[in-house]
Structures are given as C-alpha cells and as structure tokens.
Amino acid sequence: MKSTITKSADGAILRPGADVVAESQSTLRSDMRDLVASGVKNLTVDLADVRMIDSSGLGLLIAAHNSLRKSGGQLSLIHATHDLLELFRTMRMDQHFSISGE
C-alpha cells in the first residue's frame, strides 16, 4: 500500500500504508530520500496503519534520523501501537527520537 505524504511549512508527515518490513521498505526508503532531498528537515512518520516493523524497518528509520540530523532536523514517530512502543524501547531507539503512542 502506498504511503501518504502531507507537507507543511516546517516539515512533512509520512504515513506508510502498510507494515515497515523488508519486503516493502524500498518504496518507503525512496519516499524518505525524496523528502530529505527536497529540503524537509522535520519529518513525522505516522504509524497509524503500521502493525509490524522488522530490523530492516528499524534500520530505515535510523538512517532517516541520521540524514535529518545532518541537516539540523529531526525525526518523530507518532501513533505507534503498544507492541511497537515496546520494540522501540527494547531496541533503545526511544533515546534518539521522539516516539508517541496511539
């Protein structure tokens, strides 16, 4: 499923239409690269339609976070399920960018 992208004056909201897993990450990676290349500094990933994120998806989010940091911006995650919040905490990702639940 395709992602939805909403741009605003101070950033963009990217809402993946499916789980962020190895099978589907190339499209999402391309969307994120395009947003960073277009000058977006503050990117919010809306996880409302995401039930599962695997290690490749975690890597994708960290790569996006690293790119945004270099340009003085930041990554935020919103609407994470309880299981995804637990995953981010377990993998210590909550120490590096803002993550909020459903």
Partner: peptide
Amino acid sequence: HPSEPGGRGLEIYRKY
C-alpha cells in the same frame, strides 16, 4: 550502536 542503521536482527533474536 543506536545510530547504526543495520545489524539489529540478531539483537532481536536475543531480546525476543
């Protein structure tokens, strides 16, 4: 390391 994009598969094995 938290800023490394890769290498989390085995860590997930250990933790889950």
